[in-house]
Amino acid sequence: MRKPFFVIVISVCLVLSLGLGLFGCKQAPKEKTFFAMNTLMTVSLYGDSALLDECGRLLASLDRTLSATDPTSEVYRLNHGGTSEDEHVKELLDKSLALSRLTEGAFDPTVYPVVRAWGFTTGDYRIPAQDELTAALSKVGYERIAWKEGSISLPQGVEIDFGGIAKGYAGDLVKRYLLDKGLTSGLLNLGGNVVAIGAKPDGTPYRIAVKDPVGEGYMCILPVVDKSVVTSGLYERYFEKDGVKYGHIVDPSTGYPVDNGFLSVTVVGEDGAKCDALSTALFVMGPQKACEFAKSNALSVVMATEDCLYVSSDLSSSIAWKGEQNKRVVTL
């Protein structure tokens, strides 16, 4: 008579705990963080964790290919008179030139010598001397690159750096790889570049926050499905001298770090490389031109200045503003 009692009690408990367990646990993604392109990159996916290591290898390999400071990289070789057949470099250069044309030079991969002059590439921030800056600026100009296809070579004096587009591109590559492997749900954060792969396993959109350019919290949260979210801001890389702030986003036409009121520019879209380059370009354009450009090119954007928040019409209904809301909100 004891036996059935135990059996019943135990099976009841098992069923209950199973029920509670299923009820309580949410499916957790598998995650891994890598260091690449001078920053932390995190890959989260709902699937096979073996894929994570491969993502790390992809990112490391891309870093080696594209790093402008690494003497063994393709880009370094190009900048020093060499040639390149690398397909990634070709794809990136192609995209960069197209975007430079689209933004009329606001985004320009050849701005590298100027950025270097300010010390942003090494961390040795400095204000370059006038003639040094003029010399560096004279090398800038994407129109000088005549390459269209085949083996790449750069004209004398021109140096490129894919810093403003590489992370976006990396995100696209990793996403492409994971999708090929059958993944339907995952999230990447490559040094601040967020890539949502699909939606969350339960079908709800990923909630992606944009960091508040001033202060600690979030500026807003966006529901995102299968898109990249890239933000440009000055709050991460900048230096101050004599009370003046110099950010790492340099205007290719003037050679100076931009100071046009923009605090943060976020672009959302399917092409991560494009979003990356555009967020930089819009930042350089300044609020007025950026609003016009975003509108005429139907971009999904969220931009912030000291006293105004701009949001494109397609995002305005789903965006959740956080933090101080005493800024004027303008819907584009």
Binding site: L187, G192, V194, Y206, A209, V229
Partner: peptide, 9 residues
């Protein structure tokens, strides 16, 4: 909950 799945910066 106020949290987000990831932060773009």
């Amino acid at each position: 909950e106020d949290d987000a799945d990831s932060v773009s910066r």
